[in-house]
């Protein structure tokens, strides 16, 4: 069976009301089953995919070598620990100085500027308004322009351009006005 034929089958079954499909001819056997039922049983996974520490890794933060078969959580430990460090210092500073934190609404890559050859959206000392764009978070080519949501002055940028950031990770400290 050709890959194109399998693709076509997947497409047809996708459009049909068939839940399960088995095809056998000679030594070829194709078994397809729609995942809808399985998904419905575990809605938590669907509604909160980023609730667990996101196991993303970039070259700048390589994971400890782990066998391929290890569960997701194990492989995710190393980057999660690294990502926690700025979070801890930011939280400390936020307590001490009553600074406002701008946090990341999703897991992804932090971009400080609209393009590599452009200046950053904001730098320490800049005044921001609620709708000032302070950075972009990107995941899977979805770009999220993050707004300050608060009026004040940028005190510190807590992450590096191109760094992978976690859900809820502090990105900036702002002195509210």
């Amino acid at each position: 069976m050709k890959i194109q034929e399998i693709r076509e089958l997947i497409r047809l079954i996708d459009q049909s009301s068939i839940d399960e499909f088995v095809y056998e001819q000679g030594e070829t056997k194709v078994h397809m089953k729609k995942a809808a039922a399985a998904v419905a049983v575990t809605p938590a996974v669907v509604s909160a995919p980023a609730a667990q520490p996101a196991p993303a890794v970039t070259v700048s933060a390589p994971a400890a070598p782990a066998p391929a078969a290890m569960p997701v959580q194990a492989a995710a430990e190393a980057p999660a620990t690294e990502a926690d460090q700025p979070a801890v210092s930011a939280a400390k500073q936020a307590k001490e100085g009553a600074f406002h934190q701008i946090t990341s609404p999703m897991v992804g890559t932090f971009y400080a500027a609209p393009a590599p050859d452009k200046p950053p959206y904001v730098k320490p000392g800049d005044k921001v308004k609620k709708d000032t764009v302070v950075c972009i978070i990107e995941a899977m080519k979805l770009f999220n322009e993050i707004e300050a949501e608060v009026e004040g002055e940028i005190v510190e940028v807590l992450v590096q351009n191109g760094q992978l950031v976690e859900y809820g990770q502090p990105l900036f400290l702002v002195k509210p006005e």
């Binding site: 996974v45 996101a54 993303a56 890794v57 070598p65 995710a76 897991v107």
Partner: peptide
């Protein structure tokens, strides 16, 4: 993955999850 992340296995057989 079920979230759409790319699963990449490097030469040391380490699994990486790529967001972007």
């Amino acid at each position: 993955t079920d979230d759409g992340l790319l699963i990449l296995e490097d030469e040391q057989n380490t699994i990486h999850y790529i967001h972007s």
